[in-house]
Design a protein around this nucleic acid. Structure first.
Length: 414
RNA sequence: GUGGGUGUAGCUCAGUGGUUUAGAGCACUAGACUGUGGCUCUAGGGGCCGGGGGUUCAAAUCCCCUCAUCCACCCCA
């Protein structure tokens, strides 16, 4: 038997309404904040991601799906959306379109990680990008959208963590400084931290090993960022304070993607175990330029859909799976299906969601089916009533039923 | 990629070497109710016991491999 590939899964009809609700609320709130939807291809030239995310990162080195297509091109399944959107922004000159610089997306991403709950190989992200401004209020706005989104979804107990990595110069200087400070202690670090020393020093500060933590305590930097970055960050915080968004400063928030600069943030949600980040984002002021565009600042975030679904299933019971039908048409005999079929079609043409079970044997079975489908009404097509040009209309809520003539049935239902 | 747990009916699980046809609850189908749902009772269908190999007279049960999944790492949304 052929099964779904490792780390991929079907989203079945029972669950899909929850997904649709999340997407609908997302679209709604993003439009309110002035963002427009964009869909970019799932496949891109692989170098787009090695250049943006960073060739040394795990995402590119270990997790990206790369293959050669028939034309010998080096293709990657997108591991995230930001690079694609920036590529599209440059390629389509969206900076010139007037409204093209605030964009959101919903779609599948691919990373060949080891799967666990809330982490698939094909997973879905919903996120947005605000390209073109370095104003701290945009940072605050972007964070506000993500918070309002969660509020509208009814997800509670989430937590916004905020940090600033500083501009490119700061970033490089901070990293060099840390390396310098840590180099004498490198032998005492744990194995993963030794690897982190070259790959991502900042993460050493997040290590859970006691020995590493002890070393790290003494080498923390004060006033690591330049004046501009410090004051930008202060104004982001002031912006958030002004609109009542709660957050905590967390210097351990270090993104694993190279393009981030300045403001970075993460939203965690308690009930998700170790994978508790449902949203992450930040500034990437150098990316547009690095990908061949004009020097353009930008900021964005992405939510993990699966994690939203998990968080939502936790707070609320996944309310009313499926939509249910308005009407089930039932017959009392095989020979009446012709009439019933016609009636069902006219109901559907009138916009009334209707179902008819062509294979059911007994009326009882058809009633049970109607119950299961959550039908509000059942129309029983019976021989005797039909002779009078009538059918039985049964209200499933209060069990009342009456004879209604065929010509009136639609207006009666509306 | 590393370490550990788990895989038995659609779902949740019991069964840890030996009654002939592997069980329960829920779900499903039907009957009681011959033209009427929900409740109750009764019956029925549905299992390559994740897959492959091995040990044994005998394997769901023991061993090896493999696949999937979950947890913790790594990393990340």
């Amino acid at each position: 038997m052929i099964k779904a590939l490792r780390g991929t899964k079907d989203i079945l009809p029972d669950e899909i309404s929850l997904w649709q609700r999340i997407e609908a609320i997302g679209r709604d709130i993003f439009y309110i904040y002035g963002y427009n939807e964009i869909k970019t291809p799932i496949i891109e030239e692989a170098s787009l991601f090695t250049r943006s995310i960073g060739g040394a990162t795990d995402i590119v080195q270990k997790e990206m799906y790369v293959f050669c297509d028939r034309g010998g091109r080096n293709i990657a399944l997108r591991p995230e959306a930001t690079a694609s959107i920036v590529r599209s922004y440059i390629e389509n000159s969206l900076s010139q379109s007037g409204r093209g610089s605030k964009l959101f997306y919903i779609g599948p991403m691919f990373r060949a990680e080891r799967p666990q709950q809330g982490r698939q190989r094909q997973f879905y992200q919903i996120g947005l990008e605000a390209i073109g401004s370095d104003n701290p209020f945009i940072d605050a706005e972007v964070i506000a959208v993500s918070v309002r989104f969660l509020e509208r979804l009814g997800i509670e107990k989430f937590h916004v963590k905020l940090n600033s990595l500083g501009c490119q110069k700061d970033k490089i200087r901070v990293i060099e400084k840390h390396k310098e400070n840590l180099r004498p202690h490198i032998e005492k670090l744990c194995e993963t931290c030794k690897a982190r020393f070259d790959k991502n020093v900042l993460r050493i500060f997040d290590c859970k090993e006691v020995s590493c933590r002890a070393i790290v305590e003494n080498v923390r930097l004060e006033k690591a960022l330049c004046y501009e970055c410090t004051s930008h960050f202060e104004r982001v915080k002031a912006g958030l304070d002004a609109i009542g968004i709660k957050y905590t400063i967390d210097h351990k928030i270090v993104r694993g993607i190279d393009y981030y600069t300045g403001t970075v943030f993460e939203i965690t949600q308690g009930s998700l175990g170790a994978k508790d980040a449902i949203c992450a984002g930040g500034r990437y002021n150098n990316l547009v330029k690095e990908l061949g565009g004009k020097d353009t600042p930008a900021i964005g975030f992405a939510f993990g859909m699966e994690r939203l679904v998990l968080a939502l299933g936790d707070t609320k019971e996944a309310e009313g799976a499926g939509l249910g039908v308005d009407v089930v048409v039932a017959v009392t005999g095989e020979q009446l299906y012709g009439e019933a079929f016609k009636l069902t079609e006219s109901l559907r043409k009138a916009g009334i969601a209707s179902e008819i079970d062509y294979d059911a044997k007994s009326l009882k079975a058809q009633m049970r089916k109607a119950e299961k489908l959550g039908a509000k009404f059942v129309i029983i097509v019976g021989e005797e009533e039909l002779k009078k040009g009538k059918v039985i209309l049964r209200d499933m809520k209060n069990s009342n039923q009456e004879e209604v003539s065929l010509s009136e049935i639609i207006t009666k239902l509306k």
